[in-house]
Design a protein around this nucleic acid. Structure first.
Length: 424
DNA sequence: GTGTCTAAG
DNA sequence: TATTCTTAGACAC
């Protein structure tokens, strides 16, 4: 059955991506244990192989491992997403130069369609070399017939000598799936993994492949049913090449707790501006904006978690319009006397920019829409040229004392003139 | 329709 | 003192 399948899918995965980015500009980090931390330097989100060997788990709360880090001289960095985003663009551009059909799955991963290529495995080896040469980022590539199998191949590739692994023959596939724990299968996490194992004795990817799809469908969902077919080599998940997000959110945990409405207003305005920028980047407008505030979920006994959805009468991507809606929502749910620790906004009901609804074709709104579009374009352009925060709405505030902490930040080498690397 | 659960990276 | 952030889909109600 497998030999009749002509469709090849590969997964390209950057190795320890954030750490690899830091190493690009600090060659002394090579062969040393390095970790990169999340916002507020809260937990570990990327580890070099050396750091993994020293026993730092993924997602580890930094404060629990600080002593270990000190003892072993582990280098720790705050996350520098501006740098990582730029390096990511370069890696993806390299892939796009060689492959016509690509789905950028995350900041450090892409699926590519290699159907029609005579020797796809050799192609992957070549591609890996090009990415290394052009960007300096090491990648692993897993090759097979479906996304789920390519993911499984990628797991093996990560640990292999040359960083490329093909899952192309039935026997290889079965052996690999037998060695893959059920909760390591793409799309199956700890909850479902536990249920599958404890209730049905399904311990490995191979066990799942052999399970009855209809039975699993009954006890779980279509999601896992699809995974079964994918493990059998029947592709159910297509490459999604065009990116138009259905919701866009911007949320943050504060550097300290915040109880003043005025400070929350600034934070909400900033997050809204951030989300609106992403919205415009994909040429879309939003019909709704959801905002929420919450107290510290780890400490409080009297918690206050509240959110509010504001529906807009017409879709917009105008920062000012979105901010005033968001502030209105905030004022409706704010209660004084609470120590807020986190706030966020989510843009919803997103439509493409050229989508016009009947009632906004009135002259007034069209003219207004055009003016706002021109203004937003100018703002985005200026900020792109001179730094993110040159032009911003007054509501966003200037001091931003609530801002996240990032004490161990590396320079944004590739996107800021004043933070270029110095060579003496 | 909305909220909750689950997952991924 | 310190426990991320963003997106998506399914399902129960």
């Amino acid at each position: 059955m497998l030999n009749t399948m002509k469709r090849f899918i590969a997964l390209v995965d950057c190795n320890n991506f954030y750490v690899s980015c830091e190493r690009l500009f600090s060659p002394s980090y090579i062969d040393k244990p390095v970790v990169v931390l999340s916002n507020n330097d809260g937990c570990v989100i990327s580890r070099s192989n050396e750091a993994k060997l020293l026993g730092i788990p993924m997602g580890a709360p930094y404060f629990k491992f600080q002593a270990l880090c000190k003892r072993h001289k582990i280098i720790a960095h705050s996350s520098n997403f501006e740098l990582y985003g730029d390096i990511s663009r370069r890696v993806m551009a390299t892939l796009e130069a060689f492959v016509p059909s690509i789905e950028i799955y995350s900041i450090d991963e892409a699926f590519i369609d290699l159907t029609g290529i005579a020797d796809p495995l050799a192609f992957c080896v070549m591609l890996r070399g090009k990415v290394m040469l052009w960007t300096g980022i090491p990648v692993s590539i897993g090759l097979s017939y479906t996304k789920t199998l390519a993911k499984a191949a990628g797991e093996v590739a990560k640990k292999s000598e040359n960083g490329v692994f093909g899952l192309l023959h039935e026997e290889d596939i079965n052996l690999t799936l037998q060695a893959l724990n059920i909760n390591k299968v793409w799309g199956i996490g700890n909850q479902w993994g536990m249920k599958l194992e404890l209730k049905f004795g399904i311990r490995t990817a191979y066990d799942l492949k052999l399970a009855s799809a209809t039975f699993i469908r009954k006890h779980f969902s279509v999601v896992i049913e699809r995974i079964i077919y994918e493990l059998k080599g029947l592709s159910c998940l297509e490459l999604e090449e065009i990116e138009t997000k259905k919701s866009i959110s911007s949320t943050r945990t504060f550097g300290r707790s915040v109880s003043e409405l005025s400070e929350l207003r600034e934070a909400i305005a900033s997050y809204t501006a951030n989300a609106a920028r992403k919205l415009r980047r994909q040429n879309s407008k939003a019909y709704g904006i959801y905002i929420y505030i919450r107290t510290d979920r780890f400490r409080d006994t009297t918690q206050h978690n509240k959110g509010k959805l504001i529906e807009l009468t017409y879709p917009t991507s105008d920062t000012g319009a979105l901010i005033s809606a968001a502030i209105k929502g905030l004022e409706a749910i704010y209660k004084r006397g609470f120590q807020y620790k986190k706030a966020g906004v989510v843009l919803l009901d997103i439509v493409r920019e050229n989508y016009l609804q009947r009632d906004i074709t009135e002259e007034y709104n069209v003219e207004r829409g055009l003016r706002s579009a021109a203004l937003m374009e100018a703002v985005d352009e200026l900020n792109k040229k001179f730094g993110k925060r040159l032009v911003q709405h007054a509501a966003e505030g200037v001091k931003k004392e609530w801002k996240v902490k990032a004490d161990l930040l590396s320079p944004r080498y590739t996107t800021r003139w004043d933070e270029l690397i110095n060579v003496y």
